[in-house]
Write a protein that binds this DNA or RNA. Structure first.
Lengths: 163, 163
DNA sequence: AGTGAAAGGCATCGCTT
DNA sequence: AAGCGATGCCTTTCACT
């Protein structure tokens, strides 16, 4: 990596301790500061300062509980690939905000390629999926076509840094 | 929902307080129990019992820090669609374990449809992507074809329950 | 199931090295 | 960056409802 490109994102230098903190907090985001400090081998006061620094530098962007969609009555997950009409590409950005606000939308991927974006949807059942696609996609003037695939299983990994 | 299908997943009855707890913990997984109790309007002792119950019932499956891949030197995200040779479908399950162990793999979706699975990859650069696809996919005897699309942006939403 | 009180543990701060 | 010590808050347990 050149020095020039480095300077575009200054101060993102993670040492071994930072990396260990990130790793532990990904594995258990509700660990106490005292135990985290023990595990990474620094004093509690140092540890809390490190964590706050990681958060304020937006290396850690948040802490969240992961929830089983089935426990919330959402038994069916699908991926919907969407292609936008070629004359309506500039509307993709505004569709993002509309779609993100919908409770069924777990994830949104905006893509370069044949498809313009992919929606990861959690729904109660197939009727719910159909209603979603009809109402929010097929009926949308910018949408050219959609393709829905059922998700049999889904795995989410923590971020593991580059070598 | 019929009583029969209800009984397949017993004891997943979330009341208003449980739902509020889940919501708050998705928004801020590191909130203190005391503040969480205040926000949902129960005593701290009740609140901690509720949280533990949600975790032991696997409604909440974990707590994690969310990390910016770019901060970890992973500047490029792609989705790779993979189709498996029709004679090798039974190998999909074992490929799951191999792929999940790789540090570049953020997510895995196993699908029904034209593609057998989609890999959400975080990589340093396009060389890194190429190396990953060549080494772990193209060279794999079960893989029939792959298609790689760049991810321009990615949004992750909390789970919001069914009505 | 939920609550409140009490004891111990933890977070957080300022200061020192 | 680490360690120490003090304060106040938080967590946790338990008896009671």
């Amino acid at each position: 990596m050149s020095e020039a490109s480095k300077n575009l994102r200054p101060e993102i230098e993670l040492d071994e301790i930072d990396r260990k903190i990130v790793e532990e907090l990904q594995a258990n985001g509700r660990i106490t500061n005292a135990e985290l400090a023990d595990r990474v081998g620094v004093a509690a006061s140092t540890c809390i300062a490190r964590v706050r620094s990681l958060v304020s530098r937006r290396i850690i962007t948040g802490f969240t509980a992961t929830v089983d969609p089935r426990a919330m009555g959402l038994d069916l997950q699908v991926l919907v690939s969407v292609t936008v009409r070629s004359g309506a590409r500039q509307r993709i950005a505004e569709m993002s905000d509309e779609l993100r606000a919908l409770p069924e939308v777990m994830q949104l991927f905006f893509l370069g390629g044949v498809e313009d974006f992919i929606i990861h949807l959690a729904a109660r059942d197939s009727d719910h999926v159909r209603d979603f696609v009809m109402e929010h996609l097929s009926a949308h003037p910018a949408v050219s076509s959609t393709r829905t695939s059922i998700v049999f299983s889904h795995h989410l990994n923590p971020i593991r840094g580059a070598a």
